[in-house]
Design a binder for these strands. Structure first.
Lengths: 191, 191
DNA sequence: GGAGGCATGTAACACGTTACATGATTTG
DNA sequence: CAAATCATGTAACGTGTTACATGCCTCC
């Protein structure tokens, strides 16, 4: 039982769904391809953490809809009682920043301009998801779902994603201010 | 040439050092064990991106001090001209949050209490490193190193780490407010 | 008619961790 | 006297990505 296996059980605790569906849902939280997920689901089924029902579809390919067994729920409960492991972040921008002085400031600036765009695109996505989530809760706007709400977890994680992303946007903008472009320097001295 | 290989070259661009040293330095930015680093260094040396000098030591074991070749520097320059890849984050807390409703609020709170402690420990480390870095630059306090300074990159990354970590601390504290503990509820109703 | 989505699976490869192996020196 | 640090390396294993494989349906 590795972390991804628990992740799959975790999403199945919210609603039964297919391996394909799980793959799409888990992406933002624990990147994984279908080639990794399908064999794990088969193993989880063999070990009786999940069970599946074969669903015939006419318009789309048939699918296996997985759901948690009691053993699966118990496994999740035990997993939740252990503290979370330290998060792991891998970002090659960190590594590039360390040797940035090897290139001119325009090349260095481009690294931050590209990354800033990345964070801004993420911001757009989050800004769309927030009212969407609010709507699903059925609560009046600006009211926070409670611990019992099935949307509580998603709400917490969206808030985290937004605040960290905003910090990253500010960081990129600040970094770009620190790296004056040669063009800007020329402009400054002319003006 | 994978990302870790470029990472090793990147750190060598700052100063020549041993594989052991590289392992220690690269940890916070791209977690890697010595068992992964030593073979990569051997490959980089074979491909002439780096070269090494055997240094005999009396008090400690001998070591190989690696340094960049011209080919290595050129490889770094090309790598820097390409945009950074999307960062990858893996955090099992995200997955646990999705199935939190399976356990009582105290068990859920513990997840955030543990994680909060983790972020607070990181904050202490960062708060120590900042004046240390300031000192190394030789600049007056609160002055920001410029793009040309060898400490510019480290300064940028430390600022990012601090701001993201602070956002995470606030998030944990806010989440804990949202998850009222049963004990707190009892207290509230008694008072 | 081609592209993309739905849906499942396997095989080969790349990347990362744990364990095995050695051995001197320093610190508690 | 045990544990930690410095220092290097290999082997086995676990995890993650890319590519191979199939097939139907819908939208442009």
């Amino acid at each position: 039982m590795n972390t991804l296996s628990y992740g799959l059980l975790s999403f199945l605790s919210r609603s039964s769904c297919s391996g394909y569906d799980l793959m799409l849902q888990i992406q933002p939280f624990w990147p994984a391809k279908h080639s990794q997920i399908y064999p794990l689901l088969a193993q989880l089924e063999k070990d009786e953490y999940v069970q599946y029902e074969h669903i015939s579809q006419s318009d789309k390919p048939d699918k296996k809809v997985y759901s948690l067994t009691d053993k699966g729920i118990e496994a999740l409960r035990e997993w939740l009682s252990e503290p979370a492991s330290d998060p792991v972040m891998r970002d090659d921008l960190y590594l590039k920043v360390f040797c940035m002085s090897l290139v001119d400031s325009n090349t260095a600036r481009n690294l931050f301009i590209n990354r800033l765009q990345h964070y801004q695109q993420k911001k757009l996505k989050f800004d769309n998801k927030l009212p969407q989530l609010q709507c699903m809760t059925g609560l009046p706007p600006d009211e926070i779902p409670s611990f019992d709400s099935p949307f509580f977890g998603a709400y917490l994680l969206l808030q985290k994603a937004i605040s960290v992303n905003d910090a990253n946007i500010k960081w990129c903008e600040w970094a770009l201010e620190q790296i004056a472009s040669p063009a800007a320097e020329k402009r400054d001295s002319v003006e």
